[in-house]
């Protein structure tokens, strides 16, 4: 009997240790937009879900938070023992750095964080995940430059963030370059800013005003505002009886979501989040910038609509190959 009891307790202890050692890793995402906004919020949330499934992590999120709630929300997750905080946006930088200083045992992945942000974290527990903003703009711009008939293209931003400015610049650069090769001159309207990522009504009004100015290809960086813009474009096309104005979506592949979408710039944020998870598990996390480029496969061009003629598809994909090879515009 004694032997049995000893064996029993030994087994219980062994099981307990195995449970403790198989740590259940947890990631939390904060977002100031909705996770079903059909744009940035949707894509960045899905990236966390995909990466969590791949690495066997559990995940939580808090969305639609205002600026004064960034820090408190992050800290709440830190207090709950989360291993990784995933903040998809440059606007969370200050809150992340403050929390990272107070919670050295927690890791922080800042999507679109600046190159200099990780070195500012005194505990070395912040990593910037940085999709190349210029390449993002190029992917959309090359398609816009080939598809525009009015030679006027438009861009709608939510806030004037560093990443938004980079995307806008790349968009115009690529559109003008490819159009010039076709013997045309493209005008990119000044970037407009809704001052919000959730007011889809502003997207509707901006798109209508820009179509009045002759814009026929749109790209944006404004979450639900982009959804509003697409609604206005679809309404315009319906009234015209044919699809005359197009939209290029980002950062997920949203082909089919709206009739006007002819293609998407896709950012595989899940691989960036996955790398952060892997580094956390390996104990190597922190103090670095993980770049997302066409070359390493984080950035890509999404599926193209049938509305893009075959010859343009061929030209476009050739340009994307040049971008990958680093020979675009050289």
């Amino acid at each position: 009997m004694k032997k049995f009891v000893v064996v029993f307790f030994a087994l219980v202890m062994a099981l307990s240790f195995s449970v403790v050692s198989a740590k259940d890793y947890q990631v939390a995402m904060i977002s100031d937009t909705s996770i079903n906004d059909g744009g940035w919020g949707s894509a960045t949330y899905q990236a966390m879900v995909d990466a969590s499934e791949e690495y066997g992590w559990t995940y939580k999120y808090t969305d639609n938070i205002s600026q004064n709630e960034y820090y408190e929300t992050i800290v709440a997750y830190c207090d709950m023992g989360f291993d990784l905080i995933y903040a998809p946006g440059n606007q969370y930088t200050d809150a992340v750095l403050q929390a990272a200083e107070e919670y050295p045992e927690v890791n922080f992945a800042l999507l679109n964080g600046a190159v200099t942000t990780p070195e500012k974290a005194v505990n070395g527990n912040v990593t910037s995940l940085l999709p190349d903003k210029t390449e993002i703009g190029w992917i959309a711009g090359a398609l816009a430059g080939l598809m525009t008939k009015s030679n006027i293209i438009a861009f709608i931003g939510g806030m004037e963030l560093d990443t938004t400015l980079g995307k806008y610049a790349g968009y115009g650069e690529a559109a003008k370059f490819v159009a010039e090769k076709e013997g045309r001159e493209v005008t990119l309207l000044d970037a407009v800013y809704a001052g919000s990522f959730s007011d889809s009504g502003k997207g509707i009004e901006f798109a209508k005003a820009m179509m009045d100015q002759g814009a026929d290809v749109f790209f944006g960086d404004a979450s639900a505002v982009d959804s509003g813009a697409r609604q206005a474009i679809d309404e315009f096309n319906k009234a015209a009886g044919e699809v005359k104005v197009y939209d290029i979506a980002q950062p997920g592949d949203f082909l089919g979501q709206n009739e006007c979408i002819i293609g998407s710039q896709v950012t595989d944020n899940s691989s960036l989040v996955g790398l952060s998870m892997k580094a956390t598990m390996d104990g190597t996390f922190g103090g670095e910038v993980i770049y997302g480029t066409l070359e390493n496969g984080v950035l890509s061009a999404g599926k193209l609509s049938d509305m893009v003629p075959e010859d343009i598809q061929t030209k476009y994909l050739a340009y994307v190959d040049e971008m990958k090879a680093g020979t675009f515009m050289k």
């Binding site: 909705s34 969305d63 639609n64 959730s198 007011d199 009504g201 959804s227």
Partner: peptide
């Protein structure tokens, strides 16, 4: 009105 006559989606914070 905002979600049935103006914008065809509901986004949290759409009252803005």
């Amino acid at each position: 009105y905002l979600t049935t006559c103006y914008s065809n989606t509901f986004t949290e914070g759409n009252i803005a």
